[in-house]
Design a protein around this nucleic acid. Structure first.
Lengths: 197, 197
DNA sequence: GTCTATAGACGGATAGAC
DNA sequence: GTCTATCCGTCTATAGAC
């Protein structure tokens, strides 16, 4: 019926423009470097070197901009996931993917957004579910046969993702108590598994 | 030298008043129920049934109020920790303490605050370190002797805390993929350990 | 100790000229 | 498409009367 997103009755807006992309780039940078509280129209525009009001020509609301960022972040995460699986040590590569500081910082901010901004929650949850399912499927395939059968892969993925995320976000605060010991367990487990395969 | 907190040269402020406590109570409720973005002077005062400006009679800044909440939350957490250790199954009780939804929600919000508000970071990190150290010490004591020697206890605490926190915060979003399987691993591990002890 | 009033910054968003 | 100007809400915090 309508050619636009069906919720904006009468303002202007454009789709695959380069300027639009610059806003998304800037928003992602602000989110990664400064976090959700600083993700304002003015800050994003300043980082993009563009006028604040121009942002509202490309995005109906700030939530629309954030949704675009969410989709972009998820696409890049899936691409990196494929790369990790293609390498010689996919399980270790998956661990390192989940331990990437900037990726983990973005994931933390997105979770925080999902908690507090209901209009965006569904999209963040959807993309998290998609990524979770792919990780579980991959680990199920990669795990030695006698482990993959039951739900061990799913449990292991949960533990690894939770641990990686907490280590990264705590380290950013200067809190590292217990990190070395936890990383030792991960390393030992990964070594044992690669011997078994 | 000064009898006040040594940073406020000239405004009024009072210490162990009941009204002050009401503000701290209200702030903690807002933080738990609505999260950091809603933790404003107006929201806190409204929840306390008091005037907004009165808050600034008891707290020099909003950061001072948040610091009071941080200390309060940490005190209660330590009290619950002692209770958990006093019971018949301390390891399982520790797991459940870390899995408490409202406690985990507060912990998540506090971490988020620590990331974004430098003036408060130090206090949050300090209390997290205190709690972490106590948990590691307790688990080291409780674990069968052949495990406690190296850093296993610290690694296990890290894994348990990270997993519990992620499960709780994801569940609040309606994201539960993999939770059942992860909880099964925890339950099995706790059962094995209590057999060994 | 508690009130009214208000300053001053910043937020999202819109109108309309060019 | 991009600009200037602007509305209106909310925020932290202060001044000063009672």
């Amino acid at each position: 019926m309508d050619n636009d997103t069906a919720q904006a009755p009468r303002r202007l807006g454009l789709e695959s423009s380069q300027t639009r992309t610059r806003f998304i780039d800037a928003a992602e940078e602000v989110l990664r470097d400064e976090g959700m509280p600083e993700l304002t129209a003015r800050q994003v525009a300043a980082r993009a070197g563009l006028k604040t009001q121009l942002l509202y020509y490309y995005f109906r609301t700030m939530d629309d901009l954030i949704l675009a960022v969410v989709r972009r972040v998820n696409e890049r995460r899936l691409a990196r996931f494929d790369e990790a699986l293609a390498g010689p040590e996919p399980l270790r590569a998956l661990w390192e993917l989940n331990s990437d500081p900037s990726g983990a910082a973005l994931a933390s901010e997105l979770t925080s957004i999902a908690i507090h901004r209901e209009p965006i929650r569904a999209e963040i949850v959807r993309s998290a579910q998609e990524f979770r399912a792919m990780q579980i499927a991959a680990v199920t395939r990669l795990l030695p046969a006698r482990f993959g059968g039951d739900g061990s892969a799913a449990g292991i993925v949960m533990i690894a993702v939770a641990l990686a995320r907490m280590i990264v976000s705590e380290a950013a605060l200067g809190l590292t108590d217990g990190h070395r010991e936890a990383l030792a367990i991960v390393d030992k487990t990964l070594s044992n598994l690669s011997d078994l395969i």
